[in-house]
């Protein structure tokens, strides 16, 4: 394993993106998807840096979450409100229980700044949600601004653009997509 790793690393330095970074980011995204499907909300929040944001813009042309309408624009504190709400015994909409399945794919490393330890990665996602005998589908693009920390990769900002984000919502999004 270790051998293979050094080999790929070497090969990669000749190109712009390290295969290592590619794999590392993919594994990170898969883990985040798994965390969502397993409803490990605290673990989800812990994937973000202290100044991290989860952002779903209201429209695709937005360039910042500050001062514009968003579907989600949450720092760790607001994420904690969301987590605490769904965990409250009187979060009425949590019954019936519901489930999701996330697929993440088409991972492209847009930037890999080794010096700063910052990575920008674009990917495609598809989420299927099942609640009260009905399925909903949400799909689109993730853009993760990641930072290398002593705990591994952490999210400084996750931007989520859904192809159906401006459509009519048949019921709300209770938790992050």
């Amino acid at each position: 394993m270790a051998k293979e790793k050094t080999k790929t690393k070497k090969k990669a330095t000749a190109k712009t993106n390290g295969v290592d970074t590619q794999r590392e980011v993919e594994q990170f995204l898969y883990r985040q998807a798994e965390i969502l499907d397993a409803k490990q909300w605290a673990d989800f929040i812990d994937l973000f840096t202290a100044d991290g944001h989860y952002w779903m813009p209201a429209t695709p042309d937005q360039t910042t979450g500050e001062g514009v309408p968003s579907i989600f624009y949450e720092d760790r504190d607001l994420m904690t409100v969301r987590m605490t709400r769904v965990g409250h015994p009187h979060a009425w909409s949590q019954a019936p229980a519901w489930g999701t399945s996330h697929l993440v794919s088409n991972v492209v490393i847009e930037q890999d700044d080794k010096k700063k330890g910052e990575i920008v990665a674009r990917s495609r996602f598809h989420m299927m949600e099942f609640r009260r005998d009905a399925s909903r589908h949400f799909a689109g693009t993730y853009r993760h601004h990641l930072r290398r920390t002593s705990d591994g990769l952490r999210i400084r900002q996750q931007r989520v653009d859904m192809v159906n984000g401006e459509g009519v919502y048949d019921y709300v999004l209770q938790i992050w997509v």
């Binding site: 779903m56 579907i71 409100v81 709400r85 919502y169 709300v172 999004l173 209770q174």
Partner: peptide
Amino acid sequence: SPATMVNA
């Protein structure tokens, strides 16, 4: 917003 914790 469509992700409202209130209207949910």
